[in-house]
Design a protein around this nucleic acid. Structure first.
Lengths: 336, 336
DNA sequence: TTGAAAGCGCTAACAT
DNA sequence: ATGTTAGCGCTTTCAA
């Protein structure tokens, strides 16, 4: 068996209580005793049993980072940025448990005892039940990325709508009138917000979108490729295409070049997210930056203060999304 | 406070022992009693306290997935595939704790009580101390992706060397003689194995590599871009460039097209990994498939059997890497 | 088939 | 400044 505070107590000739206090750096303990105990602990290679501590302190040292799904619809870049952002903040103090909500058969194992706090990186309303569950259980909670309705939570999200709006205006400013849209995954809030923002941006300039120029997508590379294929088969092609994320934009560009056409020479393409690879695509992608890592970081910080102060604040914070102009959109006059 | 087995016992008019047994589906308990207890537990919305259970059973239900680092050198695709592979296997039975080894100030919190098992997704020898630590502590352990020396462990890895070897042969078969290499991150085992395999492949056909045609890289997009820039500035350019991973290949292609040259028309480019985006690049990338998700899945399965059977097997398994021929490499005669 | 009692390793009142 | 004692919620002998 492994060494416990009782073993240390025996060797130090004190009670295990004293050992516990010494190891927790209690001011009550004589500095010399403290030092002696620390030395013994060190030499015995003692490590505390966190399960025992958790049991009495009612704290798990676990933080959950939950995604709507870890399967389709969650891009590698998204997962990466979210984990990085959260991980940077929590440091050594918590275990970061990563999971797809759709992997749970039941939420039984999700409770205050097992999670000191939860971050939901939400993409669709499919996880609404989970959010309500966590909220009811009064687990400290922040929901990132999509707006939550029906239940009050701390809610941090990118301004998808505003970004798409500004992108539409930019496209129009470049002279485009016949503009197409490859939608994001059906049911995802971001898909909807981006479409709405985009259409609103067009409307702002008196344009409405031809229904035939809206094609469905799944947020993955393949569906961008397929979607663009359909648009190119149209008798009258669009001059510009807004892909609801960068992954689809990459696929879309592929479909264009494969037919011997060029981006942006023959057709302009824009994306959304500003993934790491977007600046390195050929041509470099014009897109909208969505600050996922920043949101994740902010969410983790909020959560930690909730846990420390035992108060959860409930409000919505919108993070700015920024138009990033690169090379994949050209003016209809030629040139960028 | 939350409901415990004692609360259930009181309501059911039995001892808490009986409740414990009933809930764990012990054959000793009368079916009717069992049913009654289950019903009460259900109605009370009982969830077990895993900390208490962990304390007595000496099991944490935690699995660690540790990366050498979560910062530079770990690409989004790599993280994504690793998490997906492991997550698919462990289902609902364990918490998956994700962490960068370089985030630990000390390994104190890593022990048998806190982790039922550990998967190290290792990229460099910088995590050697951690692997040795986990091995000494006798935590069930598998190490993926890089060969481990100096300590016996279960070790699953891709055949980086063989893949690079075959790629070199392919390039030569396409008529290339002046071939360059953009290396992976210094210190990473994979960088070394790929270089060695590649040089061996050249040597097999009597070629040696010009020192000037080897440039350093960091496994990220930017360094691929920079590296290719340096190669293009050479008085006598290579006809083909092997980038040690796909991320760098994407950056490299960018550097080529930015100078008004084309891939593969003016220069051929190959990568390694076969990331999701590689097939969708323009041109589609010729590369070597490294089955990270498959390795992760196999690693997780191994680990679970170790935990179940309380035996750890120690051996090395090499996973095949496959040449994937697409469009970015052209024969020096023209055409693919 | 069930219950009583002990104990997992720790922290925290309450003494002293 | 230190020790005694109880208890967190659970599983598991041992006894009935």
């Amino acid at each position: 068996m492994s060494v416990t505070i009782k073993d240390i107590a025996r060797l130090a000739g004190v009670s295990h209580t004293t050992v516990s206090r010494a190891l927790n750096d209690s001011p009550l303990i004589n500095p010399e005793t403290k030092e002696r105990i620390h030395a013994i602990a060190e030499s015995l290679n003692y490590t505390p049993n966190y399960n025992a501590r958790s049991l009495v302190l009612d704290r798990s040292y676990n933080l959950g980072l939950f995604f709507s799904t870890l399967h389709t619809g969650t891009s590698a870049g998204f997962l990466y940025e979210a984990i990085k952002g959260v991980n940077d903040v929590i440091q050594d103090n918590f275990n970061l448990i990563v999971r797809g909500i759709d992997d749970y058969k039941s939420f039984h194992k999700v409770n205050r005892k097992s999670f000191d706090g939860i971050i939901v990186m939400s993409q669709s309303t499919s996880d609404q039940a989970f959010i309500e569950y966590a909220s009811e259980k009064e687990i400290p909670l922040v929901v990132l990325n999509r707006p939550v309705e029906g239940v009050e939570v701390m809610n941090l999200l990118p301004d998808d709508r505003g970004g798409a709006f500004r992108l539409a205006e930019f496209l129009i400013g470049q002279g485009h009138r016949r503009i197409a849209l490859i939608e994001g995954k059906a049911g995802f809030k971001s898909s909807q917000a981006r479409r709405e923002g985009f259409l609103a941006g067009l409307a702002e300039h008196g344009l409405t979108m031809d229904e035939n120029l809206i094609v469905p997508g799944e947020y993955d590379l393949e569906s961008g490729y397929q979607g663009m294929g359909r648009l190119l088969d149209l008798p009258e092609r669009p001059t510009a295409v807004f892909c609801s994320n960068d992954d689809m934009a990459l696929g879309a560009v592929k479909a264009v070049t494969e037919r011997g056409l060029s981006v942006p020479g023959d057709i302009s393409v824009a994306g959304f997210d500003d993934h790491l690879f977007s600046a390195f695509m050929t041509p470099a992608l014009t897109t909208v930056r969505r600050p996922i890592e920043e949101i994740s970081r902010a969410g983790a910080e909020k959560l930690l203060t909730f846990i420390d102060n035992k108060v959860v604040e409930k409000s919505t914070v919108l993070f700015h999304t920024e138009l990033v102009i690169r090379e994949s959109v050209q003016s209809t006059q030629g040139g960028r």
